[in-house]
Design a protein around this nucleic acid. Structure first.
Length: 649
RNA sequence: GGGCUCGUAGCCGAGUCUGGAUUAAGGCGCUGGCCUUCGGAGCCGGAGACCGGGGGUUCAAAUCCCCUCGAGCCCGCCA
């Protein structure tokens, strides 16, 4: 017998028999949901029900007595996977699995389904767009941003394995002031050819340019504030200026030549701000010269980003250029439609969207999880110079996405929560409430450096490339130490997947809602609870199978009597459940955690019990099959989170 | 000022959505063993938390509700 979800079979059987018993004795009571939990201790069986506590209250009786009566009334003739049931604790009903049978079904199922084991398909496959990464093509990706592709890729993989049609989209955000800033600085330098990885090269230009311009702007505003004696503004402006000044000092120190050159060239301009705005406007309007410049710079930077992502083995099905959205008048069309709604109004030359009004009109407060007292801020759609803003374009982009998918998942940091809220409200206002319902903001918390938040604008960040380099370097040192006999090529290969695996695991393992402080030893951990540990366990399993050099012909599963063996069997039998939960709730960290638990149990088993030399042969075969099953499950979990499952390392 | 998120041992962190069994995982670090026969990137053991604080709901609360403190983020004609 092969089951795609062995543990669910057991649970179902427990559920049905408990229900039967309940019907027989207390058909009149109203227990709506008889939940079964995993008891804290194997002595209490593999599933337990606490319904007698609730029942006891209703009937005003002792829970334990009720439990005993219910156990008594179970239809034992129908037991297949249940070995026995008892009442224990203060009134728990404990179900014990029939291990010989259950072991056999579990192990055989895993080995039979192999690469598909655990990946239970949904009965409602959807077309889903997962938009992730979408890093601005302005600078290299930093380690804070890297959490995004790691999570996004894992989510896409989970949903795909769940049977959905998944499309991974990268939104290239090349429209807007920031792109114009970079292009401006780049042009000022005479459009130089990069002498290093292009995103690294352009990142410096962007940071310095934007820093210089920001300082110039703030100085001017400060003067203006002083002139009109707007005293309350001055301290804030001063503080902001100080921040930028110290950022400038850091940049000057790090890149003295480039800094000086840009300073000189930018000072030439009377009003750089104005030039940047003009450039931005021209680009959005699709003027040829602006296109050549900005699109050129964006593409150059994107080349670098693609190299980084390739190396991390993250890939995409579509690269969506924001500029093309603007040029094909999609943005204009959406704007026209928005203007016709009662929520959009002009305000001193700009166009404003009254989100609060729309929320009230559609009665969305509760639906969107907002407090009644919370007033949604309004949103500016168009600047005074007629150019659009990012959220405006995002509305058009979202509509574009829903032409291609039924569900859209945006993997974006939680700091963009308000922006994503605005987006949803705008969809409602446009009459696309159903889109809003199928738009999911997968929010994750920030990655910071000890003491401060990473910022690409000020140049204070650690590059993702650096982290990968360092991880692979460290892995190489480890391999050389542990396996000096390997060839150079082999060492390199191992160092690569170990280092990359460690980085990926470190970023996927943590609950996305929790903030992460980046430290090197978080990523360079090669011990328990790391990708290398799991990879090693997988390699170990492979090694045993290799050494055995035989197929488990006659496994005697009834001989698997050790507690350790039972634990492993239970663990692998619950992988399908874990997978379903991870895919439905979008929690890739559950997979990482599960993989670590399994690896842990397997290593304990490995140390305690012989496999190949076990006697009799039937036991040896059964253990061999178990090892094979562990190997398969470990490999499947690693695949899900994008980590190589090596046969040797 | 308003809103969102996080707060579990020296450090990192699972569990919180879906409340359950006086043993609240696991890792690092500290510490005592195994010095390896299927690979030690390993295994076994010890010390260390009552879950930010305070109330409440419940037979049962780290988990739900209220209040409060601390940290981060957002509230821009930036993206």
């Amino acid at each position: 017998m092969v089951s795609e979800n062995p543990f669910a079979e057991f649970r179902l059987e427990c559920q049905n028999s408990l229900e039967g018993s309940l019907q027989k004795l207390f058909s009149e009571t109203q227990i709506t949901r008889l939940s079964l939990e995993r008891p804290p201790n194997p002595e209490f069986g593999q599933l337990a029900s606490s319904l007698c506590f609730e029942l006891a209250k209703q009937l005003n009786e002792n829970p334990l007595t009720l439990a005993k009566r219910l156990v008594e009334a179970l239809n034992k003739s129908k037991f297949s996977l249940i070995e026995h049931v008892d009442a224990a604790g203060g009134g728990y009903i404990n179900f014990h699995v029939d291990f010989p049978k259950f072991s056999s079904i579990t192990i055989e199922s895993v080995r039979h389904l192999d690469i598909e084991y655990g990946l239970v398909k949904t009965d409602k496959p959807l077309k889903i767009i997962v938009e992730h990464t979408s890093a601005n093509p302005l600078h290299p990706m930093h380690i804070g941003q890297a959490r995004n592709p790691m999570l996004g890729d894992a989510i896409a993989q989970l949903l795909k394995s769940r049977g959905h049609n998944v499309y991974r989209h990268f939104y290239v955000d090349d429209v807007g002031r920031q792109s114009a800033v970079l292009a401006y600085g780049y042009k000022k330098l005479g459009r130089p050819k990069p002498d290093e990885k292009p995103d690294h090269f352009l990142g410096k230009i962007y940071t310095i340019t934007s820093c210089l311009i920001e300082i110039k702007r703030l100085k001017r505003e400060l003067e203006r504030a002083k002139a009109v004696s707007a005293t309350e503004e001055i301290p804030n402006l001063n503080k902001e200026l100080d921040d930028w000044m110290s950022a400038a000092a850091e940049l000057k120190e790090k890149h003295p030549n480039l800094f000086e050159e840009l300073l000189e060239r930018i000072t030439e301009d009377e009003d750089p701000e104005k030039k940047i705005n003009e450039l931005n406007k021209a680009y959005e309007a699709g003027h040829e010269r602006a296109k050549q410049l900005i699109r050129g710079v964006s593409e150059l930077c994107l080349q670098g980003l693609k190299q980084t992502l390739n190396r991390a083995e993250v890939s995409y099905d579509s690269w969506d250029w924001e500029s093309e959205l603007a040029w094909t008048s999609r943005v204009q069309t959406v704007l026209e439609k928005l203007k016709k709604t009662p929520y959009v109004f002009p305000l001193g030359g700009i166009l404003e969207f009254d989100a609060e009004k729309a929320v009230q009109q559609f009665d969305l407060k509760k639906k969107l999880g907002l407090r009644e007292s919370y007033e949604v801020p309004s949103l500016t759609l168009i600047r005074a110079d007629g150019t659009t803003l990012y959220p405006t374009r995002d509305i058009a982009y979202t509509l574009w996405k829903f032409e291609r998918a039924e569900k859209v998942i945006n993997v974006i940091g939680m700091e963009q929560k308000l922006a994503q809220l605005h987006l949803k409200i705008a969809l409602h206002a446009l009459g696309y409430g159903n889109y809003a319902d199928n738009l999911i903001h997968f929010a994750y918390n920030l990655v910071s450096l000890p003491g401060y938040t990473m910022s690409s604008r000020t140049g204070r960040y650690i590059k993702f490339d650096e982290v990968m380099d360092e991880a692979v370097k460290r892995a190489y040192e480890e391999v050389s130490k542990r396996s000096p006999q390997l060839s150079e090529e082999q060492k390199q290969e191992i160092a690569n997947f170990v280092g990359m695996g460690a980085v990926r695991y470190a970023l996927v393992e943590v609950d996305p809602s929790k903030p992460v402080v980046f430290t090197w030893d978080r990523v360079l951990n090669f011990e328990t609870n790391s990708a290398p540990y799991i990879q090693y366990s997988h390699a170990r399993a492979c090694s045993i199978l290799r050494k055995a050099a035989r197929k488990p012909e006659k496994p005697a599963y009834n001989l698997l009597k050790e507690k350790l063996e039972h634990e492993i069997i239970l663990t692998i039998s619950s992988f399908p459940d874990i997978f379903i939960e991870a895919a439905e709730l979008l929690k890739p960290n559950l997979i990482a955690d599960f993989a670590n638990v399994l690896a842990d149990k397997f290593n304990t088993f490995y140390n305690a019990l012989p496999v190949i030399k076990a006697k009799p042969q039937g036991l040896s075969d059964a253990r061999l099959a178990l090892v094979d099953a562990v190997r398969i499950v470990l490999r499947n979990t690693l695949n899900l989170i994008g980590i190589v499952a090596p046969e040797r390392m």
